[in-house]
Simulated assay, not measured.
Amino acid sequence: MPGVGNPTRVRLWDIPTRIVHWSLAVLVPFAWWSAEQHDMERHRAAGYVILGLLIFRLIWGFIGSSTARFSGFVRGPAKVLSYARGKGDDAAPGHNPLGGWSVIAMILLLLTQVGLGLFASDTDGLESGPLSYMVSFETATTLADRHETMFNVLAAIIALHIAAVLFYLFVRRDNLITPMIGGARIYDVAPAVPPTMASLGRAAVAALAAAGIAWWVSQGLPLPA
């Protein structure tokens, strides 16, 4: 039986969580690159897919696997401070208290970035987000500027995230990358309460809902006839 001195392979991250993570890791740089190339068609398409992924992640944060649920990794200030002081439990499955809040910060920043793009318009009015008609032209162009500025903040947070992962890998000798690829992690001591994985059927329903909402938004929220 699993126990002290008997390494145990524990399934930590489900397939949907890993798909969202690595899809965002590819799509965010692609969205930046396409904007730099003035390829706004692909830039918008990437933004809509990112929106769908974020909506799915929000839904999955309530109905997904135990390690994906917000209730499973969002901790109060006391626990975060205790972990930061080195008194936390590194063996707890899933995100540590600091990592949990970094996930929340990343989701909120990405939602803000996408949201700004949905309402933005360039100064010529030739390239506009699908919801730009809901605000004045002056506001839409201002939001376009904020959309560019916010990316710098997002890039800094992403750089901090990568730095933290590398710190854990090389300084603390804790590989966070492999479990996010393969889904499992080896524990010297098995967690007292192993993570529970949600069904792929539940993920499919959440994905359909997220895709539908993202598509609806991309169409400018048309009202029923």
Rank of each mutant, 00 (worst) to 15 (best):
Gly117His: 07
Gly117Lys: 08
Leu126Arg: 14
Phe119Tyr: 09
Phe119His: 07
Ala140Gly: 07
Asp145Val: 02
Ile104Phe: 08
Pro130Ile: 00
Leu109Trp: 04
Ile107Phe: 04
His147Ile: 07
Gly86Pro: 15
Met134Leu: 15
Leu111Trp: 04
Thr141Glu: 11
Gly94Pro: 14
Gly129Trp: 03
Thr139Val: 10
Glu148Pro: 04
Asp122Lys: 05
Glu138Ile: 00
Val135Pro: 10
Leu143His: 00
Glu127Asn: 13
Pro93Tyr: 01
Val135Leu: 12
Phe119Glu: 02
Gly125Met: 07
Leu108Lys: 12
Gly99Glu: 15
Thr123His: 01
Met106Cys: 08
Met134Arg: 15
Ser132Met: 06
Ser128Pro: 06
Tyr83Gly: 05
Val135Lys: 04
Thr149Pro: 02
Gly94Phe: 10
Ala91Asn: 15
Leu131Gly: 07
Asp145Leu: 01
Pro97His: 04
Leu108Phe: 11
Ser121Trp: 03
Lys87Arg: 15
Gly100His: 02
Gly125Cys: 12
His95Ser: 14
Gln113Thr: 08
Ser121Leu: 07
Gly100Arg: 03
Glu148Leu: 12
Trp101Ala: 02
Pro93Gly: 05
His95Tyr: 13
Gln113Glu: 13
Thr112Pro: 08
Thr141Cys: 03
Thr112Asn: 10
Ser121Gln: 13
Thr112Ala: 13
Met134His: 14
Ala105Ile: 12
Leu131Thr: 11
Val114Thr: 12
Ala144Met: 06
Tyr133Trp: 14
Thr123Met: 02
Glu127Pro: 03
Ser132Ala: 15
Gly94Tyr: 06
Ala140Gln: 02
Met134Ala: 15
Ala144Thr: 04
Val114Leu: 03
Leu108Cys: 11
Met106Ile: 10
Pro130His: 00
Leu131Trp: 02
Trp101Phe: 01
Gly99Pro: 14
Met134Pro: 14
Leu110Cys: 11
Asp89Thr: 09
Thr123Val: 07
Phe137Val: 12
His95Met: 14
Glu148His: 11
Asp122Val: 10
Pro97Asp: 08
Tyr83Phe: 11
Asn96Glu: 13
Gly117Tyr: 09
Ala105Cys: 06
His147Ala: 03
Pro130Thr: 00
Val103Gln: 07
Asp145Lys: 03
Leu111Thr: 11
Trp101Glu: 04
Leu108Val: 14
Met106Thr: 14
Val103Phe: 04
Ser102Gly: 08
Asp89Cys: 09
Leu126Trp: 12
Leu110Trp: 02
Thr142Ala: 01
Ser136Lys: 05
Gly117Phe: 06
Met106Asp: 10
His95Pro: 15
Tyr83Trp: 05
Phe119Arg: 04
Pro93Leu: 03
Asp124Arg: 06
Gly125Tyr: 09
